[in-house]
Amino acid sequence: MTSAASIGYYPGCALHGSSNDYEASVRACLGALGVELCELNDWICCGATAAHSLNHNLAVALPARNLAIAERDGVRELLAPCPMCSMELIRGNRAMARDEKLRRKMSEIVELNIKGETKVLNLIQVFQGIGMDAIKAAVKYPLTEISAACYYGCLLTRPPEDLRFDDCEHPSSMETIIEALGGKTVEWNYKTECCGAGMTLANTDTVLELSHKILSNARAHGANCVVAACPMCHVNLDMKQGDVERRYGVRHGMMIYYLSDLTGLALGIDAHTLGIDRHFVVTK
């Protein structure tokens, strides 16, 4: 990726809603790294869990529409910072690549021709595209105080057959980025464990238990913050942290950063622009 490159951007519902702090930091830090984001014109919901649990056609048609828009507008690389969105888009692409009949059917449904030429990227892959050397060179304030537990959650490295940028079960790409920013990372055990995701509304107890385990393990291994790259993970670890503390009678006080937050800070962007002051857990 050269400087001032432009890539497609699919925010998905979360980044335009409850997680607009994530969008703020993604835009700010990628802007500082010379990557321009072109938001898809007239994008729609990816379908998320709701679609693929209810209707297979819908689960492909929704991402298909977004992929088709991207193709129509000549977008070759599409950033979907939310792992749920990126997974749905990748799965849609894959289903259509495997099944020519399905591809034609979807093209008909969304009223746009889909060839499957758009590559869907998550935030880590975009950073990898920029390159660690370029990131290192852009760092103004190395993250010397940071000892991060990098948290990938269940979706960021999946589906593994398509996302080969890292080891699905023992990923290390986020660590590489944090270390390029001058920070330290810890080895811990809950990198790819589930946070409970959407259960946060339906089954709060489960989410609190899982989040508590994740936060405790990060703390036990010497982390002073958790780095995530998923709006859902962020909600369960950040917004729900107060509930976790009350339920288990402990004090975690663990800052939950987005990967783009820490990158932005290291690049010299202020916390307000990055939306960090809109997080629930604020220490220091």
Partner: peptide
């Protein structure tokens, strides 16, 4: 062959 990251191979 994608290995067995979950079993902590080589780690």
């Amino acid at each position: 062959l994608s290995g067995y990251g979950e079993y902590g191979y080589g780690k």
